[in-house]
Amino acid sequence: MKRYLLILLAALASLAVCAALALAVIERPEARTDLPRVVAHSTEHAGAPHPITAVLLDFRSYDTLLEVAVLLVAVVVALALREAQPDGPDRMGLDNPLLRAVMSWLLPLMVLVAAYLLWAGSTRPGGAFQAAAVLAAAGVLLRLAGVRLGGFAGERGARRLRALLVLGPAVFVAVGAGTALGGRAFLDYPADWAGGLILAIELALTLSIALALLSLFRLAPPQSDVERLPERRRRTRE
């Protein structure tokens, strides 16, 4: 009985939201400014000719900076929730020769695609986020195949990981502070440096975002599941 009441309530609530949004779609007010034209006009002076990259890293770079900060905060919370246990052998090692063989073909390709996306981002669809997503996917694949990323193991590795995680926001803030010290507004690049600065920021962002996504994935499993792996393998073979 109570369940039906809940469903009724949910249906009512979602209908109300639908109605409100539909009203917004039908009664859409006229735009006060023609944003596409403004963007098209000012893209000529921006550091990147591709309008979306220009919006992301030039006109609205505050948004992007804060977005990377959000990612960083997410990783920090995940790190804080991690259980104090030694980093055991990899839980997810599927240890399959076929997977490893495919990976040895796939990984260089994925890194290449990521580099291309990053580079193409200034003139064509692509950019730091897409490149970072592909890199993170490559890292997840590595992890599924049970390959450990040796550079990030142990005390020094953890420190290195944190440094790389902070690299993106740090470069971003440094550029912003640099422009502010140079007498311009925060993150307002000088015209002839804009291209280089944006590329530098994108490079740092790619590394940081990829590592952040990967470590959010890596931090999830509790380490004590390790000893259950052989038993699971036996079960899948049966």
């Binding site: 979306i52 897409q130 997503a133 959010l216 994935f217 999830a220």
Partner: peptide
Amino acid sequence: PDIALAEAAIGAGLTGVL
């Protein structure tokens, strides 16, 4: 196309794996 690339890699790939 930018969002399509990101969605294919993130929305379908990474979120699904997670």
